[in-house]
Amino acid sequence: MPAVSFDHVSRHFGAVKAVDDVILDIAEGEFFAMLGPSGSGKTTCLRLIAGFERPTGGDIRIFGAPVADLPPYKRQVNTVFQDYALFPHLNVRDNVAYGLMIAGRGKRERHAEAEAALEMVRLGGYGSRKPSELSGGQRQRVALARALVNKPRVLLLDEPLGALDLKLREQMQEELKTLQRQLGITFVFVTHDQGEALSMADRVAVFNDGKIIQVGSPEDIYFRPEVPFVADFVGSSNVLPEALVARLTGETCPAAIRPERLRLAPEGPLKARVTGLSFLGLSTRVSFDAEGTRLTALLPQDVARPREGDEVALTWAPEDLHLMRASERAGQQVGQRVGA
């Protein structure tokens, strides 16, 4: 039985289709990421699971039970909010123990459990502080402990790492992943950061315009995008338009090629002009104008770099050109083939 299932779920705000006819199953114990640009409907999906929004159409089930008429406080899911939403008038311990207090547990018991939860997120001994006295990363952990202490069956995370700096974010990614493996709880995680989604999730759903465009493992999403949007948004891949692909291969569909797979060669199938160079440390990013299409290549530092304005030829290994045959259905619901 899936932990969460969406059956043709929509949430329309007037004419705005925030979530439009989404079909989705999230398996129990899965680390599931909802990835998409802002306004793509991923957060609304999360809020639908939590119960902060009600669907205008379709059916949501949590562990098989329909939740349409279930208010948030009766759902066995907990949320880590983007702004953490810690209660400023309570100290850290009482924040974490809040759910247990509401559940009617005794003071001694709930404080002990709160302390244990704080230990789990490596904040033991911080119980008496006020949230305002903590750093962003620490607040994030308190929010996590506050949700997990209730032993939810599904944990929802709304851009939980968005407010943290890069180093802390990478560290928290590791920790979240470890925590999820240990606890075995289903994590549903909303992010607009493709790197975050790919590195943490077991499966990723890519959202655009209120619809799920593609669902799959990070490898699928990254190496085998089905539509140009996924190739562009997730992998920052180069998308070759249909006409160009037709000339190069004879196939009539767009194709994607990863920037690190493009090579400069004396002779090659595609002529391009260098329009820009930027030094990234490990590699150099080179932008090209190839017959009107903007392409990017990542060149290792040991390769001779071209100069801006140079006319060059581009080449690649045939298997690196990923044909997106599914894109005739682009924009259509691809969820029918989505399963846990």
């Binding site: 939590a50 902060f52 406080y73 949320t79 702004d83 939403a85 209660f87 207090m101």
Partner: peptide, 22 residues
């Protein structure tokens, strides 16, 4: 912030409890 009231509900508090405690 609205998220604070949502957080209370999310943690199991009925609207009356949210009013009382948050």
């Amino acid at each position: 912030p609205g998220s604070m009231l949502e957080a209370s509900g999310d943690l199991g508090a009925t609207p009356a409890q949210t009013f009382r405690h948050v």
